[in-house]
Design a protein around this nucleic acid. Structure first.
Lengths: 237, 237
DNA sequence: CCTATTAATAAATCATACAAATTAGCGTGT
DNA sequence: ACACGCTAATTTGTATGATTTATTAATAGG
């Protein structure tokens, strides 16, 4: 059309997701204040240059993430922050650059501190044979990468993500499952292990790995805690 | 129309949510297997007796919860369980009666065990003045209810929910915020504190409360752990 | 036998129309 | 002047059909 809207319509894919992202970022950044009523569907359609169908699907998406709530006649409202689902991977992706990324990573580490040691403990007790085999396989890859002549950062991040995700999946507790994806998203979008070389923390991972394989939940919990302490010490600031 | 579809169309409100719930429960129960392709939009429209608009919004909703993923030409696929967002309140509501509820509550307690002690510790350090005032107010209500002649179960559940939610909101960590809503949902839908009378656990809450107010994070963590141990001992089996 | 083009298909988007819900305001009666 | 109920206007909710795009698969050409 005639605005600066081609930037949205002509982007990558899934129009309603693009629109949702735009609106989400306005909400997350506070540009659309909490409890305020956002413009009506028709206005937003014009503003973004998309059809009502696409816009409505975008609103539905944001509603399911706890950012919006709409009622007939009254309009669509930005709900308060306490209801935003920060544990949604897509929402986390959209946070990029909104708040201070170092602070964001630091807070995420605050979550890992609570979750991961317990997850490791549960995995030590509940991992199935298949999961133990898979973990073994992944750890072997970690060793290979850590011992390689040139350290491949991308590969390391990939297996590191798989390693921690698999642990969440091995807890036997459905509520731990989503953390694997959250961690994957954070690793992919926010955490840039610049100064991290594999050789230093491969030992930490070995501790976690062997404790889980041995079914020693207390040792697994402790090893995970130790690992996270080490990660923390590498954080900026 | 002419099917058994009024049961859906004629229900409460928000057609697409109703449809989403139906499909979600089929997925959660395994009736629609992981990695399988669900029927095309048109077929599903007929099956549920709704328009494509409503159905598509339902699919979008489920996609955002990690249950479905659709691509042109190939169709809409049920993604594997590891990607389902069990930390979504709406999804948790839909779980009712799908799996064994006692087991589900037990697993939830497994999550609380990891999260809450750490949340209490963070709250002790980071709660704002307003949040401390509010917490104080809520705890006073808890005492009133616990000391009343007749124990009002509904009121207790309400303030108990508020108490724990506020702690999550007082951590100063965005990743802890959603747990308040998850807890609220679980309390409202699954946890029926039948044998719980307030007088026994008001002391446990007092320990948590005063530790947070005193800014003693270690004591807060410990008090929360103790409380959860007590809760666990009251679980069935 | 391999590669590139094309055709078929299903979802993605658009446009429009109508329905339902809720609020605000108007009007009437006491 | 006040209370009550009704109407109308606004906004989201649902429906339908047409068009576009993306992906697979088949087909034709090298």
């Amino acid at each position: 059309m005639e605005g600066g809207f081609e930037s949205i319509a002509g982007s990558k894919r899934s129009l309603h997701v693009q629109v949702a992202r735009e609106i989400a970022r306005k909400i997350l950044s506070g540009q659309l204040p909490q409890n305020s009523i956002i413009p009506s569907e028709l206005e937003l359609c014009e503003q973004f240059g998309v059809s009502r169908t696409a816009l409505r699907e975008a609103v539905k998406l944001l509603t399911s993430k706890g950012l919006l709530k709409s009622r007939p006649k009254v309009g669509t409202k930005v709900v308060e922050r306490a209801y935003w689902n920060f544990l949604d991977s897509q929402l986390i992706e959209w946070m990029d650059g909104i708040s201070d990324n170092d602070e964001f990573c630091s807070q995420f580490l605050g979550l890992r501190n609570a979750i991961e040691p317990e997850a490791c403990a549960l995995a030590a007790r509940n991992a199935t044979v298949e999961q133990r085999m898979k973990l073994s396989e992944i750890f072997e890859q970690m060793c290979d990468i850590a011992n390689a002549d040139v350290f491949d950062q991308a590969k390391w991040t990939s297996v590191d993500t798989q390693f921690h995700s698999l642990i969440f999946n091995s807890t036997g507790n459905v509520f731990y499952l989503p953390f694997g994806n959250i961690l994957t998203t954070m690793f992919a979008n926010f955490i840039h292990h610049s100064s991290t070389d594999g050789s230093t923390c491969i030992e930490e991972h070995r501790q976690i790995y062997s404790a889980i394989m041995a079914g020693n939940s207390d040792k697994a919990r402790l090893a995970s805690s130790t690992h996270l302490q080490a990660v923390k010490s590498k954080l900026p600031k």
